[in-house]
Design a protein around this nucleic acid. Structure first.
Lengths: 346, 346
DNA sequence: TTGAAAGCGCTAACAT
DNA sequence: ATGTTAGCGCTTTCAA
């Protein structure tokens, strides 16, 4: 007895009562545990259906099972989410894989402080809100891996870890290809001096791209100018652009860490009376749809962000379920040539 | 006794044991329930600290308390998240208020089908994963209100509900101001024929803007052309633009439902050999940072999306806590004049 | 094949 | 001021 207290949502015992079986029978049926006669099974399923019941996530989680949610913590200031769609695109990819397997995504966007981020992970773990987390923006000397291991929270990193082995990571094959192609493209157009407005130096990929850039530049007789900026804002891109354009020996081409920054760069160049691509070639990063809409249409290093997100989600879910990950191929980065690059001084 | 089973995370009884008090004492301390002597309080807090303990969200939720998470379900196809930052900006605003009060945001992005969305809300409620939800994109004959009421899930709508009273809603004051100002601006420039590429017709705001537009146009002797599109994609904007530009009596100005669409429209106009703003004036919607970076810089109807997100979050949290909402003012929409509008035929 | 019962970690009556 | 205890809704032995 004892079911159906009017107010609340139905519980497993309401279902059991309606089906005329015990709660454990219901549990077995809904969890496919077997050992239940077919007619009983039917009755239970009918009751479940009639009552529109589904197990309380809290109770299931408390019982030690999974929460069926994965977490993501982003440290960028909320406003930046807006101007840098990078993160958002990753999320689309992640959700695309999470939704079909009924996992939720718990998002935490914390303010600038490093500490807030660590606290967020700590809470996620200690309060057992999520089964695992997806990490983005791999940092040099990233302390999150140790933290997460200490917390016993499974994680998957999108990107290249700063050193071997910390957590499973997903990344595109042939990482170097995009930047290399960009340099080759510029060299072939006749450029001899190219700048790279890099992201913040604490990012692993900043260092990686820098090395790839320098090496490719050397191979192709291009002299590289490196301009790391403190953050991914349009403002930072604009001032790095100004700076490089006021160099005595100014570059005839500039690469940017992402497309929005590239667009900001084009804008900054214009304010100095320079026309793109006539006076300056510009290459972005990420290949967001936007790039094809602006004038001039943006030449950019395409990245399979959606693929990375999907792969990370799949990898983590597999990890949690103890199954092997069936991760779809991630496209390697590659140059998408449009209109913002041309021969210098044309 | 009975505490500290080596493996797992510490529980409230570990804390109680370490502090030499009962579990209820610990509970009272951490929940500020009073009735605890100061020295005891200290000891408990010390134990909490030493053990790095925090209450299990699952247990708290099961106990009937709050989950401290709010949900959001978006029905747009994942890819669109990318090109339409609208949703993302809202999320920044929401997170900005959620983070300080330690609420999480559980995001569900479901594919196109209407049914998937309803199922998502249903699960959120039945599994008691969230305490409430924030609804965006108010629809005509929106069925979500009834669903949510049936589920007993508190909700706050961002926008104008299609009829009175379904759920608390937050919206900017002087809704009509933005579009009205845009029309006045165009009329003052000498335009006599303006088009409006509206969002899908099932959106409440589409109808609202349409009426405001028509009315303002009438007042100012502008003949309006209305072009609803099936979705917010760049492609839809481009083809609506083409269509309107091939009209015998083609408009000299076009408003768009959002900035990305406006940029796509500018692009479409260019492909027809038209220059903006010389041959066509363009006005966007939302005033995303991007608008100031493109060429020509976009004239647009600014919306306080971050403010809307913040207000919605605050409102919902207040609703859940039973406290009165101390909602910050939301800025009314207003025209931001930049370079994509000019006198026709100039 | 089915059911009874013991918790999971916590809060809130209700003692003391 | 502090402790005891009964569940919250579920899963899972263990018995029947």
């Amino acid at each position: 007895m004892g079911a159906g207290r009017s107010g609340g949502r139905p519980t497993i015992s309401d279902v059991a009562a309606l089906a005329g079986v015990s709660v454990s029978a219901v549990s077995k049926v809904v969890n496919n545990k077997g050992g239940i006669a077919e007619p009983t099974r039917r009755r239970v399923l009918e009751a479940v259906d009639k009552l529109q019941w589904s197990p309380s996530a809290a109770a299931v989680a408390l019982r030690g099972a999974r929460t069926r949610a994965i977490g993501m913590v982003s440290r960028r200031p909320p406003d930046l989410l807006t101007s840098d769609p990078h993160f958002t695109v990753l999320i689309s990819g992640i959700e695309r894989e999470l939704a079909p397997v009924d996992y939720g995504l718990l998002l935490h966007i914390v303010g600038g402080q490093d500490d807030a981020e660590r606290r967020a992970y700590r809470r996620l773990a200690e309060e057992r809100r999520v089964d695992g987390v997806i990490l983005t923006e791999s940092l040099v000397r990233d302390t999150r891996f140790d933290l997460l291991r200490g917390l016993g929270l499974p994680a998957v990193l999108i990107g290249t870890p700063w050193r071997e082995d910390p957590v499973p990571a997903v990344r595109a094959p042939h990482q170097e290809r995009g930047v290399t192609e960009a340099v080759e493209h510029l060299a072939a157009l006749g450029h001899r001096r190219a700048a790279y407005v890099l992201g913040p130096e604490d990012r692993v990929h900043t260092g990686f791209r820098r090395r790839v850039f320098e090496e490719a530049a050397r191979r192709h007789g291009l002299s590289p100018v490196l301009l790391p900026v403190p953050d991914f804002t349009a403002e930072a891109a604009a001032s790095a652009t100004e700076e490089s354009l006021s160099l005595a020996d100014r570059p005839t081409a500039i690469l940017y860490a992402n497309d929005m920054m590239a667009i900001a760069g084009i804008n900054a160049a214009r304010r100095r009376g320079l026309e793109v691509p006539r006076d300056l070639s510009v290459v972005g990063h990420d290949d967001l749809p936007l790039g094809a809409l602006v004038q001039p249409r943006l030449t950019t290093v395409g990245q399979d962000l959606v693929g990375l997100g999907r792969a990370a989600a799949l990898r983590l879910v597999a990890e949690l379920g103890g199954t092997a990950a069936e991760v779809p191929a991630i496209a390697p980065p590659g140059l998408v040539v449009r209109e913002s690059t041309a021969a210098p001084g044309t």
